[in-house]
């Protein structure tokens, strides 16, 4: 079957989709957007979290056919999504960032200095906070956590620790023990409130 929907502000069409395919599979294998991750494919880990019409969901549990005509935001579009939110409607350039070329991503090579603020890639506050707080180790849980944390901060700009834990309780991380993730979200919240 064919599925048409919007990803990160850009219309997308997927063809020859098997009816049992998940949104996650279509994003990763058909649209070249592997940011949403395939850790459990049973809704238990949150690594595939994307926003579907604004709502965080596990993309592994959304049938591809169900997204027809709907809007999806993945981690690849998170920085732009956050930027537009900050700018407010109408004020900013709304061109969505292009999808990542897999060729580019296939072999990464770290250059120069470390992941510092403002270096090359534009990041959302929560993305930058994850880097700064050491919340990224293997990074496999990171995209899902970022989408979930960004959405929580949108709803609740001044979360308590218990609020953060509750909002992120659907995202498993096996490396960090979550302490640095807590720090990252606190940091993002603090920076966000400073910016306002």
């Amino acid at each position: 079957m064919r599925v048409n929907f919007t990803v990160n502000g850009r219309p997308q069409e997927a063809d020859d989709v098997w009816e049992g395919e998940s949104l996650l599979y279509v994003l990763r294998e058909r649209l070249g957007l592997p940011g949403a991750k395939n850790a459990c494919e049973q809704g238990e880990c949150g690594s595939c979290t994307v926003r579907l019409d604004g709502v965080p969901v596990c993309s592994c549990l959304v049938a591809a056919g169900q997204v027809e005509g709907r809007e999806v935001v993945t981690v690849e579009g998170l920085a732009e999504y956050a930027r537009q939110r900050t700018c407010g409607s109408g004020k900013c350039d709304t061109s969505a960032k292009g999808a990542t070329s897999l060729d580019d991503a296939q072999r990464w090579s770290a250059h120069g200095t470390d992941s510092q603020t403002g270096e090359g890639t534009e990041l959302s506050p929560v993305q930058q906070a994850f880097i700064d707080a050491g919340a990224v180790q293997c990074g496999f849980c990171t995209p899902g956590l970022l989408v979930a944390a960004d959405e929580m901060l949108e709803r609740n700009p001044t979360p308590t620790d218990a609020d953060i834990r509750e909002a992120l309780s659907g995202n498993l991380c096996r490396c960090t023990g979550y302490e640095t993730i807590m720090n990252a979200v606190r940091l993002a919240a603090a920076r966000q409130s400073e910016a306002v």
Partner: peptide, 27 residues
């Protein structure tokens, strides 16, 4: 950025933007 400092991960940016290519992302 030498030893003893908490320098940041060189792969951090790629990992937070979803561009870091894990083995399951190969195509």
């Amino acid at each position: 950025g030498g030893i003893g400092e908490s320098t940041l991960r060189p792969d951090g940016t790629l990992k937070v933007t979803g561009e870091f290519a894990y083995s399951s992302d190969m195509w």
